[in-house]
């Protein structure tokens, strides 16, 4: 699904956020990317979702070499990836359902089928009763759930989330993680970046550890293991 070969990312200011990262993510995997703040988690996720290009090395998403794709082609590729960002990035002047429908509209899907998919996505995150309200009326956790609904409305085979529980308290974080896990159980590949703080996994997953731009760990965990 995603293949990285000695990928490096240097920002225009000269900072090298990733160095020599080589890894392979298979279909249907549940992957947690951990590491201290500034370790390069967001950078890795932006590369894996085709938002940015690596400075060197090769990176293929769905067998398409990112470095060779045009901006427009990378934009089209992103439509098949469900993205959840660290900041909500919700449109506060639109309703909850309009926010969730945005990826469909970008892909050119409107009408009854779009309505149906939005309803399904909101149901999956438990927001079906707030469809017509403004995101301003939602709590932090609900907003994050709306972001997840927006990410999955297009029924992507790959979901990438950057610290989706970052602004939430511990109890709520596990609710969000359970939502992702339920997607993963339907065969969706899920990649989540997590701050180093302790969290619990209730089922096996793969953990990638980043340290100062280097991949320092790649392990499979069994269930209920505290990190």
């Amino acid at each position: 699904m995603i293949t990285l070969n000695t990928v490096a990312k240097r920002y225009p200011d000269g900072h090298e956020a990733l160095r020599g990262v080589t890894l392979d993510i298979e279909d249907g995997e549940m992957v947690l990317v951990t590491g201290r703040s500034g370790a390069g988690k967001s950078t890795l996720l932006r590369l894996m979702s085709g938002i940015e290009r690596p400075t060197s090395g090769s990176l293929a998403i769905h067998r398409q070499e990112i470095t060779r794709l045009s901006n427009a082609a990378r934009a089209r590729l992103r439509r098949n990836i469900g993205l959840v960002f660290q900041d909500h990035f919700l449109l506060m002047d639109r309703s909850v359902e309009e926010n969730a429908a945005l990826p469909l509209h970008i892909a050119g899907l409107y009408g009854r089928e779009a309505k149906r998919r939005v309803a399904t996505a909101l149901e999956k995150v438990g927001l079906e009763n707030q469809a017509r309200t403004s995101p301003l009326a939602l709590s932090g956790g609900e907003r994050q759930r709306l972001c997840i609904a927006r990410a999955i409305v297009n029924r992507p085979r790959l979901v990438i989330a950057d610290e989706p529980t970052g602004h939430l308290d511990q109890g709520y974080a596990s609710v969000i993680l359970d939502i992702f896990r339920s997607f993963n159980e339907t065969g969706v590949t899920v990649i989540i970046a997590m701050h180093d703080a302790a969290f619990e996994t209730s089922s096996p997953c793969r953990i990638l550890r980043l340290e100062d731009g280097l991949l320092s760990g790649d392990t499979e965990t069994a269930s209920s293991e505290a990190l």
């Binding site: 970008i106 892909a107 927006r150």
Partner: peptide, 10 residues
């Protein structure tokens, strides 16, 4: 910014 990130073309 959002629409760009989630796959809108220019």
């Amino acid at each position: 910014e959002v629409t760009h990130l989630i796959g809108a073309t220019a």
